[in-house]
Design a protein around this nucleic acid. Structure first.
Lengths: 341, 341
DNA sequence: TTGTACGCGTTATCAA
DNA sequence: TTGATAACGCGTACAA
């Protein structure tokens, strides 16, 4: 370190004020005369003062830290969400301590303990490994994003509306049969609504449909191998029909599109494709893919506002805690591109 | 808050030890008898003690914070780098305060001031807006990743070796003419070496080549529009030749590949393509793209180790500062896929 | 408008 | 092996 920090005491000695006055210069400048403000301001930069916010936190208990637990940044959905969350610094000036975790509950608990030790005022959870019951047991505001959130506040896409829009489009475009390709999603998580909405819509319009929930595997290669089978099954099963395929995400949709292209050398009229997420691959594919765009910026904004509101509430002399968790849904938008008519 | 924190004072009162002894329980447990360790351990969880690391920092000056300034998470390169950096927590237990910044130097300086106020022990910079001279003026260890780093430590890919491998592959594959497509990169940044290596290699092997450094624009659409022109120029200019195209990144390469595919319905033998970055799009393209893979995990690991070493050094009673900045280069690997023979 | 005195939760120094 | 006391840098009653 060499020489130690310049502190209020140094400024006070230099200006012949007390430490309190220096403190007030920062927190209630109006209570000083302009003349004295100027004096202190000068002293500050002749002495080269640097703030120490940690000392401030210790004194007033407001860390202005928010913890984030996120499963990975590999998926565009997560990296974009993190970007949006971090950029809320411009509005609220909360600082973010970020942990990436996808290695099970014990690691995640350890991370949260560490975050608590740094006196975070709130927590944003995007990972799925800890139950909302467990998360609620930490005595701070917690916001879940796109995950099970029974006992805590949560923000999700309106998956039902998203899938409904996708299915409706395929039906309007006069597809003879609709097929939904997805992993075998557990019913507890929000994304399950995509399956529900697809079925409901097909039934409502009396359109033949099929659910293919057989996608499994972690790596791109694994999933691509699955997708090859799924494609050839579908391609053989409905030779003369116009097939409307709704895929669980844009990565799946891109794979499917590539398989079609590799077989036919073009995108034939007998297919329509809709993906989900509006991730970069949907734009960058051999043909821009129609997709359901989650409004990530809005989701992040909603989550932060919900969190900030609760954190501010807790700082009041007589805080009124939420009587029960608030849950919000953000409607996604259908983005029509070249894989639908 | 409701009830306040349980502190060492509470534990001390409960166990009839002093605060000092409680502190020692955590920092030098060997200096207590096993019996007393047990007593304190019990008291800790009957009282429900939670650590307060901020108080610890104030007392001993070691924040264990590292600041990160990163331009965006939209590019796979950055999001993967951030993932790797954050995951170093498992080894070193430094916590990361992350800022995303691409809005100019004044915003970035403000972010760094905020980081300094939180007593960060080190800083990792991936953005390009602040000069290394400016960065060196903050009196803490700073590591630059893949950017200008004259006055600070830095880690970069060995861009020269990467481009050399790409060009050499295209030459071995008997391309008649080599073309490098890139933006007009300034000479000061490490990525300029890709252009240098390409030229050097073509000249060394006496192979006809062309530099096309005309890619400009921020959005995918802008760049794609540029790429259309570049493609049709090249496609017309060398009708009967085997063209080896080395593109500055996988996004460019994928665009070029799509344009080829859309024109020819397949990938003709008259083309070879090599991208750069090994980003997901290179695997997910209509044809898996040969690319130069930056070893992001290794770069991150090297950067963190360099930083940790300097941060530890500063904590010694008589720290020996670096006489001059250390710069390391990580050799990328050529990943051969389906756009080269 | 300004100052005094104490608290925030932990560590470091010295002494026992 | 343990304890008393003074930091660390700032905020906040309360008083002047």
């Amino acid at each position: 370190m060499g020489k130690k920090q310049v502190t209020f005491a140094d400024i006070a000695a230099y200006t012949n004020f007390s430490k309190t006055t220096i403190s007030r210069y920062f927190n209630h400048p109006d209570s000083l005369t302009l003349e004295n403000q100027e004096k202190i301001s000068q002293a500050l930069d002749t002495l080269g003062y640097k703030k120490n916010k940690l000392a401030k936190v210790l004194a007033n208990g407001k860390s202005e830290f928010i913890g984030i637990i996120i499963p990975n940044l590999y998926l565009h959905y997560y990296s974009e969400m993190l970007t949006q969350i971090l950029s809320s610094y411009r509005d609220f000036h909360y600082k973010f301590l970020v942990f990436v975790s996808d290695n099970g509950p014990s690691e995640e608990e350890q991370y949260i303990d560490e975050l608590m030790a740094y006196q975070i005022e709130g927590l944003i959870v995007l990972s799925h490994t800890l139950s909302s019951e467990k998360l609620a047991s930490y005595q701070i505001p917690v916001i879940a994003i796109e995950r099970e959130a029974e006992h805590i506040c949560g923000v999700t896409s309106d998956n039902y509306m998203g899938a409904l829009q996708a299915a409706t489009l395929l039906i309007r475009d006069k597809c003879d049969v609709l097929i939904h390709v997805n992993a075998d999603v557990p019913k507890s998580i929000p994304a399950y609504d995509r399956i529900r909405a697809f079925e409901d819509t097909c039934q409502e319009y009396h359109v033949p449909y099929e659910l293919n929930l057989n996608v499994i595997g972690d790596s791109y290669q694994d999933i691509f191998a699955q997708m090859k089978h799924i494609f050839s099954d579908i391609d053989e099963k409905y030779p003369c029909k116009k097939k409307g395929i709704f895929l669980a995400n844009d990565t799946y949709a891109n794979m499917f599109l590539n398989l079609i292209f590799q077989k036919y050398g073009c995108f034939p009229d007998s297919y329509e494709l809709v993906g989900f997420d509006n991730s970069p691959i949907a734009s960058e594919a051999i043909l821009p893919i129609t997709t359901v765009g989650q409004q990530i910026d809005l989701i992040a904004k909603t989550a932060i506002e919900l969190l900030v509101q609760q954190m501010e509430e807790r700082k009041k002399r007589r805080p009124v805690p939420l009587s029960e968790p608030i849950h919000k849904q953000i409607t996604p938008v259908l983005i029509r591109r070249d894989t639908t008519s």
